[in-house]
Design a binder for these strands. Structure first.
Length: 284
DNA sequence: CATCGGCATCTTGAACATGT
DNA sequence: ACATGTTCAAGATGCCGATG
């Protein structure tokens, strides 16, 4: 599975804003998984990145790939303490974040074979103004556009409320697959092989493999999928994992995940009972 | 009897907090 | 800003019972 850039042109020529509508296709998912494999953020880094990229506007003609972030707002959203170490802590976190935004893609076009770079070029602080300026790498615009879609089509508050990064990743991925229909919040099923799920979660082949070479499925489920589903169900404003199950077909074990996403959110999203009725869905 | 999946518990290391 | 202590999630280990 290699990264393909051929559809980047499509996005360049796309007229409507990338973060409106539901323009996802298989290629997005394809690239998404490549990015997922390369971007391994901790929870806080996921949040800082999502906040930064949510401010990026590709349709601003004067877009200079810089976003100004109010430290006051970051502090509030992440629940950081107001003390002298605030800027020191943020400095450290942004430093780590920048390091982890290194991407390495095969281009395979006539001009270039591949490209290596950091999605974030610089991070500057202006303590007097109380802001931090994040500058993204202009040369990686296509990758940033995919990130923009993937990271900001889900409510920022969902991302910010999760403790497990697997919840953030799973919601992002399921959202990219989910087709919004006329009916609000229909249940849709998605199948993943174990290998696909590991890729989505940014795990390597060797993760959750016992010393004897056997895959540690129980721990894998409990520590990634189960935690992610539980967090989404208890905290997300718009997504519910109705259920997930294992299925064996031709020796390969599939995970089938039933998900529903509300596009119109009423005041309080209902809690999902174990056996949910069709009528209840329309309320959601 | 051997293998495998299910499970509880132990270990470790990264992230976070605290003190200097 | 750095060093040190603390916490907790991720991963490892190994037992147990079911299955064939």
């Amino acid at each position: 599975m290699e990264y393909i850039f051929e559809d980047f042109e499509l996005f360049e020529n796309e007229k409507k804003p990338l973060d409106k509508g539901n323009q996802f296709n298989d290629k997005l998912v394809y690239i998404n998984s490549t990015l997922a494999r390369q971007l391994h953020f901790s929870e806080n880094e996921e949040k800082l990145f999502a906040m930064a990229i949510s401010q990026l506007d590709f349709y601003d003609k004067n877009c200079n790939f810089s976003v100004e972030i109010r430290v006051k707002d970051v502090k509030e959203k992440l629940g950081l303490a107001e003390d002298n170490s605030l800027y020191t802590d943020l400095r450290k976190q942004y430093r780590n974040l920048k390091k982890k935004t290194t991407v390495d893609f095969d281009l395979g076009n006539e001009e270039h074979d591949w490209i290596i770079g950091d999605l974030i070029r610089t991070v500057r602080s202006n303590k007097r103004k109380g802001s931090i300026i994040v500058t993204f790498e202009e040369e990686l615009k296509p990758a940033l556009q995919y990130c923009k879609i993937a990271f900001t089509r889900i409510p920022l508050d969902d991302t910010l409320s999760y403790k497990s990064r697997y919840a953030i990743i799973l919601q992002r991925y399921l959202t990219s697959l989910y087709r919004t229909g006329k009916e609000n919040a229909q249940i849709q099923w998605f199948d993943f092989t174990t290998e696909q799920l590991k890729t989505i979660f940014g795990l390597t082949k060797d993760d959750y493999v016992k010393k004897d070479g056997k895959f540690d499925r129980w721990n894998f489920e409990k520590k990634t999928l189960q935690i992610a589903c539980d967090e989404i169900n208890s905290k997300s404003a718009c997504m519910r994992i109705v259920e997930w199950e294992k299925e064996r077909a031709r020796g390969v074990i599939y995970y089938r995940i039933a998900v529903m996403i509300a596009t119109k959110i009423k005041k309080e999203p209902p809690v999902i009972d174990t056996d949910i009725e069709e009528e209840q869905l329309s309320l959601f």
